[in-house]
Amino acid sequence: STLVRVAKSATTLGIAVEGGANTRQPLPRIVTIQATRGGSAHNCGQLKVGQVILEVNGVSMRGREHRDAARLIAEAFKTKERDHVDFLVTEFNVAL
């Protein structure tokens, strides 16, 4: 797995995620990185489509349903406590 620090360099994060507990994709997976009107993720250049998100700012995504995982990611981007979001990602769809 890889730790990717995404600086809040744009007003949006600019990713789409699918998955969560009790779905076919048990951990959130990046399905889109917005390139036109690039968001922070695009500017960062290290997140890739297909990567599975294991942790956000050290908080595990395991066992979280889709809306909960999406809410945590959104809140990590929104908070003014940090000027970045740390993603622990893996290229592989880890079995649970």
Partner: peptide, 16 residues
Amino acid sequence: VREKRLTLPPSEITML
């Protein structure tokens, strides 16, 4: 386990 997995629903997609 594999059969159970196949019955799980697809996830929604959220833009962030």
